[in-house]
Measured scan of single mutants.
Amino acid sequence: MEVRTIKVFTTVDNINLHTQVVDMSMTYGQQFGPTYLDGADVTKIKPHNSHEGKTFYVLPNDDTLRVEAFEYYHTTDPSFLGRYMSALNHTKKWKYPQVNGLTSIKWADNNCYLATALLTLQQIELKFNPPALQDAYYRARAGEAANFCALILAYCNKTVGELGDVRETMSYLFQHANLDSCKRVLNVVCKTCGQQQTTLKGVEAVMYMGTLSYEQFKKGVQIPCTCGKQATKYLVQQESPFVMMSAPPAQYELKHGTFTCASEYTGNYQCGHYKHITSKETLYCIDGALLTKSSEYKGPITDVFYKENSYTTTIK
């Protein structure tokens, strides 16, 4: 009895394709271990004539594949690729409408935090270190965002349907971005203890939790000093293409032309909904596939993004 075979390709990165001759009487799992086709788990399936010449994702289970996976995804987590594939199996079914010149995501599976993050990423200057993220990001900007969303979920250790947080998501993504040249110098002034300067680099240099107003941050924000008295913390120097200011959701007025974009969060910790506000020729609110415009805006804002380049204080 002759062994019926077909020729397929296996890959971990969709760049390096490895030619395989597979036995049609055995499952993919018996031949390769966990195997995925377009995100779908085909591990328990036997090869079919229609699979001839198709590319299958496999887990990096030998040295060659491990090197290829690390170079593309910059992670050695053995569960990463499987999590990416199972997320992709959902995100490829989502709709990605162009809204006001940006790629958004039609609401499904509690994905409003991903839509808000995706919209924000198209408006701030950011370059990702893992080629996987950078490639998928370019495709997302062009309207094909399924891979990018699935990668975000995998890097953030999230599953489809789980509630997510924009600030946490951005923080994970910033860790995989090139923020080497970003720098922030802060000064804390206390009447009792004097003053202390701190220099922050990388992710810490672009994120701040405690106030939404970048102007206020430049002037000074009140913080408790270690001595128990009130101290003032203010920005001395900022070198970065953008800054992200966050605070627990509270009524906040966004003035046209003073910011790049913002995240609105309605609801409580267990259950809520994100919308995205962007400042173009007027203010726009993007909620999944829905767009509304207004000249002014007041609502429960939790993150505001500002364009920056270089700032030095005039406070002496």
Rank of each mutant, 00 (worst) to 15 (best):
N14S: 11
K93W: 07
H90P: 04
P130Y: 00
H51Q: 11
K106Q: 13
T211G: 08
D165C: 15
P97W: 00
S181N: 08
P248S: 14
H51C: 08
I315G: 13
S25D: 09
S246L: 01
D135I: 08
K201G: 08
D77N: 09
P47C: 06
S104N: 05
H256N: 14
K298P: 02
A142H: 14
K219T: 12
K233R: 14
D41Q: 12
G220A: 06
Y57Q: 08
S294A: 12
A205Q: 00
T64P: 09
Y138G: 13
K44T: 15
Q270M: 07
K191F: 07
R83L: 09
Q238I: 01
G194F: 03
G164S: 03
D63I: 09
D38N: 12
T292R: 09
A140S: 08
V236W: 06
S310L: 14
K255Q: 13
K191P: 15
E204I: 01
T76M: 14
Y311Q: 15
E125D: 13
A40M: 15
A231N: 02
E253V: 09
Q20W: 08
G33S: 05
Q98H: 10
M26W: 08
E125Q: 13
Y214D: 01
V21G: 10
V166G: 03
Y113N: 03
K316V: 15
A115P: 02
I45Y: 11
G33H: 03
T76P: 14
V58H: 06
M209T: 14
T75S: 13
V12T: 07
G164L: 04
E68L: 05
T5E: 12
D62K: 08
L291F: 10
E162P: 01
A145C: 10
T159G: 10
W94K: 02
T198S: 11
Q270R: 08
Y214L: 13
P130N: 05
A205R: 02
T198P: 03
M85T: 05
N49L: 13
E144W: 07
C227H: 00
V8G: 05
T198C: 14
A154C: 06
V203H: 13
L37F: 11
T91E: 03
V67P: 07
R184T: 05
H18M: 06
E281I: 03
L81H: 08
Y28I: 06
H273R: 00
H256L: 13
F70H: 08
M207A: 07
I315S: 15
T11M: 06
T232D: 05
E215H: 10
G143F: 00
T5K: 14
L81R: 05
T302H: 00
K201Q: 10
G210H: 03
Q270Y: 08
L153G: 03
V203T: 09
P34M: 14
T159I: 08
M244V: 00
Y265M: 00
F70A: 14
L291G: 09
T302S: 07
T55W: 07
N268I: 07
